[in-house]
Simulated scan of single mutants.
Amino acid sequence: MSQTILYARVSTVDQTLDHQTTQAEAAGFIIDEVVADHGVSGVSTKLTDRSEGKRLFDKLRRGDTLVVRWVDRLGRNYEDVTDTIRRFMKEGIIIKTVINGMTFDGATTDPMQQAVRDALIAFMAATAQAQAEATKAAQRAGIEARKGDTTRYRGKKPSYDRERFNAVLDLLAQGVGASAISKATGLTRQTVLRIKGDQAGAEAALRKWGI
């Protein structure tokens, strides 16, 4: 009998296992088991090197479904993520994402469908790595700003908190427009566009204020 396993990677205090599980269930997934790694970087630690992540390769069988919030839960390194997804597909495992509702499997034999699928995998993996690098750059910028500013000037306090910032990023990843995101989050359309146009800067502003 096939099973559906949710894999969650919780690397910061801003992410929670409950949040990722609730999102998956709200999207209609019926989860048989949750496997989670806590405090693990998706940039420097491969899935096969994580204490719980490597268990997936033993637990999952042909016909099973692996659910992740987005591909960045598998990792934030392009090569690692693409290799991992292709390995699972080769073993007959279906990968589904909560965000965007993407499905990746190795069932298709049509070369055009395979090409489209592989292009999507590559794009999503590249996006995950790019977001990680942007966050890292923002962290470095924040540290340097604090070092060089003896007055500890932090600028204007952001009109958004961490939760709404993450919500904006999630909705942008789903292709939702700025006006709709504004209504959903209660932020002004201009604020949404500022976050969209400079994610690293928006992240840095939150960190400067300890949000």
Results as ranks from 00 to 15, higher is better:
2 S>V: 11
6 L>N: 02
7 Y>Q: 07
9 R>K: 09
10 V>K: 00
13 V>S: 15
14 D>V: 07
15 Q>T: 08
15 Q>E: 15
20 Q>S: 08
20 Q>M: 09
20 Q>A: 03
21 T>Q: 12
24 A>T: 00
24 A>Y: 00
25 E>Q: 12
25 E>A: 00
25 E>C: 01
28 G>M: 00
31 I>Y: 05
35 V>C: 10
36 A>I: 04
36 A>L: 04
37 D>A: 04
39 G>Q: 06
40 V>N: 09
40 V>L: 10
41 S>E: 01
43 V>K: 15
45 T>D: 05
49 D>T: 03
50 R>D: 03
51 S>E: 15
51 S>R: 14
54 K>W: 04
57 F>W: 11
58 D>R: 13
58 D>W: 01
59 K>G: 04
59 K>N: 08
60 L>H: 04
63 G>C: 06
64 D>Q: 08
66 L>S: 08
67 V>Q: 01
68 V>I: 05
68 V>H: 01
69 R>Y: 14
72 D>I: 01
74 L>R: 10
75 G>N: 06
75 G>R: 01
78 Y>N: 12
79 E>C: 10
80 D>N: 14
83 D>P: 07
86 R>N: 11
88 F>Q: 03
91 E>L: 15
96 K>A: 09
97 T>P: 00
98 V>W: 00
101 G>S: 07
102 M>P: 04
102 M>L: 15
104 F>I: 03
105 D>R: 06
106 G>L: 09
106 G>E: 02
107 A>R: 15
110 D>H: 11
110 D>T: 06
112 M>C: 06
115 A>N: 09
115 A>K: 15
116 V>T: 07
121 I>M: 13
124 M>S: 11
125 A>G: 10
125 A>I: 01
125 A>Y: 09
125 A>V: 02
126 A>T: 13
128 A>E: 04
129 Q>N: 10
130 A>E: 14
133 E>K: 14
138 A>D: 08
140 R>V: 12
141 A>Y: 13
142 G>F: 01
142 G>Q: 06
146 R>H: 11
147 K>P: 03
147 K>A: 13
148 G>P: 03
150 T>I: 08
151 T>S: 13
157 K>G: 05
157 K>Q: 13
158 P>G: 05
159 S>D: 15
160 Y>T: 01
161 D>F: 02
162 R>W: 08
162 R>C: 03
165 F>L: 00
168 V>N: 00
168 V>P: 00
169 L>M: 14
170 D>K: 11
170 D>P: 01
173 A>M: 07
176 V>M: 11
177 G>A: 12
179 S>M: 10
180 A>E: 15
181 I>S: 02
183 K>N: 09
186 G>H: 09
188 T>G: 15
191 T>M: 05
192 V>W: 05
193 L>N: 14
194 R>Q: 13
194 R>K: 13
195 I>K: 06
197 G>S: 10
197 G>T: 05
197 G>E: 11
201 G>M: 02
203 E>K: 13
203 E>V: 05
205 A>S: 14
210 G>Q: 10
